[in-house]
Structure formats: C-alpha cells, structure tokens
Design a protein around this nucleic acid. Structure first.
Length: 343
DNA sequence: CCTCCGTTTACTCACTCATC
DNA sequence: GATGAGTGAGTAAACGGAGG
C-alpha cells in the first residue's frame, strides 16, 4: 500500500480518491470529518450497472462502512444517509431494508437518529412498472428516506442557514399582524402568542425536502456528451447535499461522500466553501466527476483530461489550475493531509 | 430434438426545466 | 407557449446456450 494516498484530482477545497471506501476510511484519523453524506447503491431487485447488493446482504454490507464512519466523524459530527425504497421479490409488499438499516445503526452501532427526512422527487417516473403501471394496484413511490445520524444528542446544526421564504399568507401576517392574526389558545391546546408575528428571516423548513431530480443540460451532462460517455446513472441533485451541508457544517469544515459517483456532494461543498473528500470505486465515474469543476473549456481539453484520469494511471489533476477560483478565502484553508494516517 | 437453465427484452407512464 | 431531454422500476415472456 502507498504511504501517501494520491487523489486523482484536486480542487481548491476538495480531493477525489479512487478506491474501496472501506480501505480509504481506515486511512482517516479518528474524529476528523464533520459530515459524511452519501447515497449507497440501494437494495433494489433490479440489477443496476453500478453493482447493487441483494436485500438480505445489505445491512451487514453497509454496516461495515457505518462502523468506520462512526469512528471518523467528529464528536458533534453527522452522518446523512439517503436510501430509496424497494419491493420484496415477486410480491407487491415493501422491503423493510431501509428501516433495518436505521434500527441496526442505532441499536448496534450506537448512532442517534437525530431526525428523519424525506426527499420528495415529484418528477419520479411511476414505478415499479409491474405493480404501478401494469396492474395499478400500487401508486408511485416518489420519496426516499434520508436518515440523519449523530454520535451525541446535540450535533452541530443551525436551521438559520436553511430557512425558506415565508408563504404569502405569512408575509401578510408579518406586515400587519393585528389585521391578519389574533394570538389565542388554539383548540389543539397550543398557546399561539404574539411572538408568532415576529419576522425571523424566513420560515423553518419541513423535513419533507421537495427537490425535483430533472437535470438535463448541466455542465456535467454536456461534458459527458462531448467525451462520449453516459453520465452516472443514479445521481442525486446537488440541492440535496447542499441542504445538509448548509444545515450541519460551517465554512472550512470537512465533508465526505463514500459512494461519491458523479460527486454532486463535492460540487455542493465546493460552492459553499467546505472542504470535501470524495471516495469512489469506479474510476470512470470519478474521472467524469471532474467536469463539475472545470468551467467553460475547449472540447479537446475536456477529452484530454478525461482520458488521462480514466486510464487508471491515477494521474493527479488540479482542477483549480484550469478554473481559477477568484474569491478564495485563505482563512478557510486547511491542510487535508492532516486527517490521513500515514503508514 | 428436448429440457433446463440463465439472460434479455417488453411492458408503461408524470413531471421539471432550459431553450426556442 | 411549445418542445425536448432527462429521470426507473419489477415481472413475465421470449430467447439462447449447454447438456443429454
């Protein structure tokens, strides 16, 4: 094994490593990562090209990674896990695999469930075809469960970073609370006071995250087309990691995605000035993920970069040299070498 | 030629967003 | 305002290869 791990590319804030995440996680020091956010291959019945695990092996398989994650996140760090649902084989009955993960991580690995989130993708196609489209005995499943785990009861979190605009009705109330609102005890028993009319800069968001996954002409996809490859087949929208990075970290913190795929997490972290690490087993997926960081460059140059990264030479590429970052805040600079164990 | 496998293919549709 | 591109899932039938 190499003494020093070599990223296949770096940016101003991040590093992308190719390899088995179990091995890579073991090279990270205890309590050094603020947030791990990831979406593993789901335990679907349909075989996917990125190699998903069967339902009966899934919990044990993912728990091996989670154990390392528990070790490497800071005391007040978080672990956010996006999981889609699946059906049992040959039955219109749900698999409980994502709930088994939740219970295993909390009861065996001693994670807290800080909060459960639901990612609603309204543009999800109606599926699975057999139960939903053909027989019409089930309706379309358009939410993923997103479990937010922590080690302690009070992990770093600030909802003020993820406030959403007030509704039109609430804006009216804030303009003239006397006219639109009368503080009193509600039938539910809640005593809604005068404080309800105080403007706090936005509404507290719900745990239902409505984010359509409809990317169709991003720079990433355009560059994939230029190079002549398909984009990663199961990308999550950048807005999803963006929400949790804003909510659970500060600028300069370190975010890790252990199943990085096309590195949407890295893109979100980079734009929010958080350091990031991306681990991905498939060199082609990881090589293409550099497209997110290149800016507008010539097609010939895009092809050259992709070739040199995907040929397996683990050629180190600095995206920041291609796309100069003008507004780099040096106060946030951190030596990412410090978080790795040197053998 | 037939059987027993495993593999491939047909089936079926809601919604968003950028661009023209 | 219309258009095109992109986003997936599980079953069962069809297909194809190996072996007798």
């Amino acid at each position: 094994m190499l003494n020093k791990l070599s990223p296949i590319y770096t940016t101003q804030f991040g590093r992308a490593y190719c390899g088995d995440s179990i091995d890579l996680l073991k090279r990270i020091k205890d309590e050094s990562i603020n947030l791990v956010i990831t979406s593993p291959p789901f335990a679907l019945l349909r075989k996917k090209e990125y190699g998903n695990k069967p339902q009966d092996e899934f919990v044990d398989w993912l728990a091996r990674f989670a154990k390392e994650i528990f070790r490497i996140i800071t005391k007040d760090g978080s672990f956010v896990l996006d999981l889609g649902h699946a059906y049992q084989k040959s039955r219109p009955v749900r698999s409980l695999y994502n709930y088994k993960i939740l219970i295993n991580f909390c009861e065996e690995l001693r994670f807290n469930l800080a909060e459960e989130f639901f990612w609603h993708n309204p543009a999800k196609l109606p599926s699975p075809i057999e139960w939903v489209n053909k027989r019409k005995i089930r309706i379309k499943d358009s939410v993923n469960t997103v479990w937010w785990f922590s080690k302690i009861d009070f992990p770093q979190a600030d909802a003020r970073n993820v406030l959403v605009p007030y509704s039109e009705r609430m804006k009216k109330l804030l303009r003239d609370s006397d006219k639109f609102y009368s503080p009193k005890k509600r039938p539910s028993g809640h005593d809604i006071s005068k404080h309800f009319s105080r403007a706090n800069g936005g509404a507290i968001p719900p745990n239902l995250l409505e984010i359509p996954n409809t990317e169709s002409n991003s720079q990433y996809l355009r560059y994939c087309k230029i190079v002549g490859i398909k984009g990663h087949p199961a990308r999550f929208p950048v807005k999803l990691p963006e929400f949790f990075i804003k909510f659970l970290t500060k600028p300069g913190d370190i975010v890790l995605d252990i199943f990085a795929g096309s590195n949407a997490t890295g893109e979100a972290a980079e734009s929010l000035e958080r350091h990031w690490l991306a681990f991905e087993l498939n060199i082609q997926y990881l090589a293409a993920s550099i497209f997110r960081f290149l800016g507008e460059i010539e097609p010939q140059q895009i092809k050259k970069i992709y070739e040199s990264l995907s040929n397996g030479n683990l050629h180190k590429y600095e995206a920041s040299k291609i796309k100069p970052i003008s507004m780099f805040n040096s106060a946030l600079s951190k030596n990412l070498d410090d978080i790795f164990i040197t053998l």
